[in-house]
Design a protein around this nucleic acid. Structure first.
Length: 87
DNA sequence: GATGAGCGA
């Protein structure tokens, strides 16, 4: 079973691949998804990483509260997505 | 800077 991780307080200079590389040190990222404002194209400073739950727990413990490129990372299990919208 | 986007076949 895989768990979705919320990773927040990211430096705006970070990219999907740098986050993936970071989490790869503490588990196997299944997918990495940095959220950006679809209208302005601006990064929103947070994202989501999916991992097997044991890897997820390990990554949270290892990375939450640590410093990453000048920001203190926030890592925890992600909340559910907002209500579904009809396209 | 703070809890997503995906949507066509």
């Amino acid at each position: 079973m895989a768990t979705s991780l919320y990773v927040g307080n990211l430096p705006f200079t970070s990219s999907q691949s740098s986050v993936e590389a970071l989490f790869a040190q503490h588990g196997t990222p299944i997918s990495v998804n940095l959220i950006m404002d679809r209208v302005t194209g601006r990064p929103r400073g947070f994202g989501f990483v999916e991992m097997e739950d044991n890897d997820a727990r390990n990554a949270i413990a290892a990375l939450n509260g640590t410093d990453f490129e000048g920001r203190t990372l926030r890592v925890n299990e992600a909340e559910k997505r907002p209500a579904p919208r009809r396209w």
